[in-house]
Design a protein around this nucleic acid. Sequence first.
DNA 1: GCGTTTAATGCAACAGTGTAGCGTTAGCGG
DNA 2: CCGCTAACGCTACACTGTTGCATTAAACGC
Lengths: 150, 150
Amino acid sequence: MPHADPAGLIAARGGRVTRTRTAVLAVLFDAGRPISHDEVGEALDARGVSHDRVTLYRTLDWLVGHDLAHKVAGPDRAWRFNAAREGGHQHAHFQCEHCGKVFCLESLQPAIAATLPSGFRLGRAELTFHGLCPACPGAAASEARNPVAP
Amino acid sequence: MPHADPAGLIAARGGRVTRTRTAVLAVLFDAGRPISHDEVGEALDARGVSHDRVTLYRTLDWLVGHDLAHKVAGPDRAWRFNAAREGGHQHAHFQCEHCGKVFCLESLQPAIAATLPSGFRLGRAELTFHGLCPACPGAAASEARNPVAP
DNA sequence: GCGTTTAATGCAACAGTGTAGCGTTAGCGG
DNA sequence: CCGCTAACGCTACACTGTTGCATTAAACGC
Ligand SMILES: [Mn+2]
Ligand SMILES: [Mn+2]
Ligand SMILES: [Zn+2]
Ligand SMILES: [Zn+2]
């Protein structure tokens, strides 16, 4: 989504259009995949934008709270943030065991058939694949398809 | 699994049978669900066993590394540890959004049909349900069944 | 443009989780 | 019982994220 308008989106949610906020959202749009707080900071450096740690955390939280971004857990217990797409956040994710990158599998439409034990009330399901991403080397090349046991 | 023999299992893996190690494994067996490092520490207190933080971390790692326990991510980016059952660790998990407890859904046999995009090599799939556990109160009572969109 | 309001920022201090080094203790094999 | 060394316990540290509070600056009405 290269031509999104960060400032406009932020203003539309009633937030103040600040340099950090627009820059962070622009970074998320450009990243194309969920990136960590730290990666956002580096991208801000490259754009010559200040990046106080706390402000950055708060900015990312604000974006998530206003549906402009979503966050997904990474393999190293650090959140990854991604610019929100239309239609919520209904897709699986992939975590690379080698480089730690996280990818949204938006094209993937997995079918999960399951019935929870009695008493458990379902909010949402989260499906995460672990393995090696296209950019990483590695021996086991199981590009296997269904079915997959969790 | 109330009658497992921690000491025997530890010895069988070639590890030294220490007080901490056997106590930790016994705690995991008794817990019945994946518990955090901190919860293990509390349980050790109740049994009058020392629980140096670092030793506890290393003990848990050792148990995981020798297939006597497995760890699963919690909602608060702290690992939860569970005594390992036979047949690896092929099941989904449930995270309660209210109390933070994690449950293994061993009885659940979800079928996931999916084909990863080209270049991604699959290691394993991880299916996690989020919602409210039987012990927690809450409004939304969707004990819904399949299909579920992640 | 110029004040006023207050959302957002920047800084310091802190909490929680997990790791690295290293000297000491104790499990186990002889 | 002895000796070897795995495991322990302690200190110090890294990383992720939060809280409090004084300061700055975005928005708005004039
Ligand atoms: Mn996503
Ligand atoms: Mn499990
Ligand atoms: Zn990779
Ligand atoms: Zn609960």
